Simulated assay, not measured.
Amino acid sequence: MKRVLVTGADGSIGRAAAIGLYADGYDVTGLSLRYDHVSTADRPLVGDARSPDDVAAALDGVDAVLHLAAIPHPSLGTPEEVFENNVAATFNVLSQAGQRGIDRVVIASSINAFGVPMNVNPVVPAYYPLDEDVRADISDAYSLSKSVDEQSARMAWRRWGTNVIALRFPLVKSRKDLLRFAAKAESDPSIMAREGWAYLDLRDGVAAIIAALESSVTGAHVVGLAADDVLIDRPTDELLREYAPTVPVRRPVAGRDALVDTSRARDLLGFSPRYSIHNDDHTVSAITS
């Protein structure tokens, strides 16, 4: 694997991924509707991930694909726009990559794929820690689009034998932006209760992407991601008692333990998060390793 296509290349994760891939020795083709930032991709292209012609041109000489292009929140378009854009782009990229015999595609799914965090109804998760099999309850177009994207990944594997990893990203930002977001969330922790106060440092997001691209695992897999701790600077069991008292907890929690099960990321991809906003850039495990 030498050249990787990154769709959504001018988004925050896309830009960071292009930098990380370049640093690891990969050639990068970028595809974005526009570029508002300088791109490190050696082949930056302007185009739409929904367009067969644009994606076909972008796939020239590509060995693997990182598909990030999407409308990232239900508030950024009508339900029809959000759903149609995200599902059409993912299916177009997967189908064209599959027909070209490209062996590996990594797509951006979301912690919202099971629907509860953005649900308009007063629902709660079936249990904590959240895992990839938690029961879905979807009431918004964005969450539905991510759920369908995961199904599209399975279809691509069955139809073309394309190996697809769908990464369920939580809140992903730089350390500076995470600290800013955490300060706001501290004033009302209930706003993140249904996603288990999950977050991921952008550097860990890039590391997970590269691990997925370089993985030898076959098939189509959904992989949940999160830091090893919660975003709020309070004990996890205290947060649960106050903001999610009715949700079953399947394993004991201590300190600021995370409420997302990331064992599949470790087992399939060999990935474990390194960074925490609570410990001077690194988690304890990273410092002692």
Results as ranks from 00 to 15, higher is better:
176 K>C: 00
182 A>H: 04
179 L>D: 11
193 A>H: 02
188 D>I: 07
162 T>L: 00
175 R>Q: 12
170 P>D: 03
166 A>D: 09
161 G>N: 04
160 W>H: 09
145 S>H: 04
181 F>I: 15
174 S>G: 08
159 R>S: 11
180 R>C: 10
159 R>D: 13
190 S>Q: 12
186 E>K: 14
184 K>A: 14
153 A>H: 06
182 A>K: 08
189 P>N: 00
164 V>F: 05
148 V>C: 01
178 L>I: 11
163 N>T: 07
193 A>P: 01
191 I>H: 05
171 L>W: 08
157 W>Y: 12
185 A>G: 09
148 V>M: 05
187 S>N: 10
196 G>Y: 07
172 V>M: 07
181 F>G: 03
178 L>R: 08
186 E>A: 15
191 I>R: 11
161 G>T: 04
174 S>Q: 04
167 L>H: 03
195 E>P: 00
148 V>H: 02
175 R>S: 08
177 D>R: 14
165 I>H: 07
187 S>W: 00
164 V>S: 06
163 N>C: 01
159 R>C: 04
154 R>S: 12
153 A>E: 08
167 L>I: 04
157 W>K: 02
145 S>V: 08
182 A>C: 05
192 M>Y: 15
182 A>N: 03
158 R>G: 05
154 R>D: 13
153 A>V: 00
147 S>N: 12
176 K>Y: 12
160 W>C: 07
177 D>Y: 08
181 F>Q: 14
164 V>Q: 01
181 F>M: 14
178 L>H: 07
193 A>K: 04
153 A>P: 09
173 K>F: 08
188 D>N: 15
184 K>L: 12
181 F>K: 11
144 L>G: 00
144 L>H: 02
168 R>G: 01
188 D>Q: 10
192 M>C: 09
179 L>A: 11
150 E>T: 03
173 K>I: 02
174 S>N: 06
181 F>T: 15
177 D>Q: 12
175 R>C: 06
189 P>Y: 05
152 S>V: 08
148 V>Y: 06
166 A>W: 03
192 M>K: 10
156 A>H: 00
151 Q>G: 11
147 S>Y: 15
149 D>T: 10
169 F>M: 07
196 G>M: 09
183 A>Q: 14
169 F>Q: 06
165 I>C: 03
162 T>C: 02
194 R>K: 11
172 V>N: 01
176 K>Q: 13
190 S>R: 13
172 V>D: 01
161 G>E: 05
194 R>C: 00
176 K>L: 13
157 W>N: 10
159 R>T: 15
155 M>K: 06
172 V>A: 13
167 L>W: 00
188 D>T: 08
152 S>F: 08
158 R>K: 14
181 F>H: 13
167 L>G: 05
161 G>L: 00
160 W>M: 02
178 L>K: 06
157 W>H: 12
154 R>I: 10
145 S>G: 03
163 N>M: 00
167 L>P: 01
172 V>F: 02
181 F>L: 11
170 P>V: 05
147 S>K: 15
182 A>T: 03
168 R>Y: 05
149 D>L: 07
191 I>T: 10
168 R>T: 01
185 A>P: 07
162 T>W: 04
155 M>Q: 10
185 A>K: 04
176 K>I: 13
173 K>V: 03
162 T>G: 03
195 E>Y: 11
182 A>I: 09
178 L>W: 07
184 K>F: 12
